[in-house]
């Protein structure tokens, strides 16, 4: 391994860990984070580096005789735009189009910003998706406005409870209860026709799709720790939604 000065090495380590942290917080797969960090390390002449990523923290050891660094990952929030941006920066660093300092500056820039769509647009998207799924799942056209409204309201409630309580399962449970109640009320009052398809369509935006894909891909890559924990999270989310709906239906 070619010796690199200590200042530069620390900068490189900061840069890798920052990249890993941002990717992990934004919903990338574990094995992709490891792959990205190792590629960046190799491009900086750290040939025998090791990296271990879990959904809760990242360990990175530059070589056998240097100290290992660790970062903790706190909240995770799906923001795939950030994943794409970090990925682009790391590609350019590996290709030699960026210096280490430039790459680090861009990473800090990405870390500070959120590229989330505004909340109203997300709620609108959830509403549109609910209405589409209502038809795709075999619902009637007359129920479209209800699925649209209830899907949007359910998604909004989940986001709000999530901001207030920071407990994901609780937020999804409350959202599912709200969706179920509203759907049953709409049908009970004579406006809607079929509560089943309205509920199925409106619940769709809460489905943990990212968790399922990530869990499968991590398991395939041999990352059982993160694969299993993401799978458990997906299962618990599905269970929270199901329990919420079940409570409403049991009355």
């Amino acid at each position: 391994m070619a010796e690199i000065s200590e200042v530069r090495r620390e900068l490189a380590l900061d840069c890798f860990l920052l990249a890993g942290k941002v990717m992990m917080e934004s919903g990338a797969e574990t094995y992709r984070v490891e792959d990205t960090m190792i590629r960046m390390a190799v491009s900086q002449n750290m040939m025998d580096s090791h990296c271990f990523v879990t959904p809760a923290g990242i360990m990175f050891s530059p070589s056998n005789d240097l100290p290992t660094r660790f970062v903790r990952i706190h909240g995770r929030r799906t923001d795939l735009e950030r994943v794409a941006r970090v990925n682009a920066v790391s590609r350019r660093l590996v290709a030699g189009q960026l210096t280490l300092q430039q790459a680090y500056d861009e990473m800090t820039e990405i870390e500070k910003n959120h590229y989330l769509f505004p909340l109203w647009l997300q709620v609108l998207a959830a509403a549109v998706a609910s209405a589409c799924f209502l038809i795709l799942m075999g619902g009637g056209w007359a129920d479209i406005p209800f699925a649209f409204l209830i899907g949007g309201i359910g998604f909004y409630i989940v986001e709000m409870v999530l901001v207030k309580t920071r407990v994901k399962f609780f937020a999804e449970f409350i959202g599912a209860v709200a969706i179920g109640t509203l759907a049953v009320l709409v049908v009970y009052s004579g406006f809607g026709n079929d509560p089943d398809t309205i509920i199925i369509g409106s619940v769709m935006p809460l489905v943990p799709g990212l968790l399922i894909t990530n869990a499968v891909r991590d398991m395939m890559a041999g990352h059982f720790v993160s694969g299993l924990s993401m799978g458990a999270e997906a299962f618990l989310t599905a269970f929270a939604i199901g329990a919420g709906i079940a409570i409403v239906l049991s009355f």
Binding site: T78, F117, V128, P205
Partner: peptide, 10 residues
């Protein structure tokens, strides 16, 4: 596409 917005893809 709507799900893309929810997951905030580029």
């Amino acid at each position: 596409g709507a799900f893309g917005i929810i997951f905030n893809i580029p």
